[in-house]
């Protein structure tokens, strides 16, 4: 029963939460700055993705306690993302192909 149950998850010091919390604000500020300074092109995209994944990673690892979970759970949660990665990759290719065909046949002509 509930009262007989042993504590399953170890508690953590409050400091770590506050640290991550602060880091999230800083990272959000940085990604906002990407827009503020109006970086363009590859630099913009890579910075956006970098900050995005860093923030997501921090939230998952510490706020959602994935860092302290056993590998069985972590792996079960992360491997399916390869399917999404594949989907994303192929849709990038597909999007490029579509816009290419549209511009080529609808605007340039001379096919």
């Amino acid at each position: 029963m509930a009262e007989a149950k042993k504590e399953q998850t170890t508690t953590h010091k409050i400091g770590i939460y506050l640290w991550i919390w602060g880091l999230l604000f800083v990272l959000s500020f940085f990604s906002y700055m990407v827009d503020w300074y109006n970086f363009q092109g590859l630099l913009r995209w890579s910075l956006i993705l970098f900050f995005m994944f860093l923030k997501a990673g921090l939230i998952m690892a510490f706020f959602m306690h994935l860092f302290w979970e056993r590998y069985a759970l972590v792996n079960v949660l992360l491997w399916p993302m390869t399917a999404i990665a594949c989907f994303v990759g192929l849709m990038v290719a597909e999007g490029k192909y579509t816009v290419f065909s549209r511009l080529f046949y609808f605007f340039v002509g001379g096919a």
Binding site: M91, G95, T98, V99, L103
Partner: peptide
């Protein structure tokens, strides 16, 4: 969203 955004002219 990304696919459509990439393919609109």
């Amino acid at each position: 969203y990304m696919k459509v955004r990439a393919s609109v002219v």
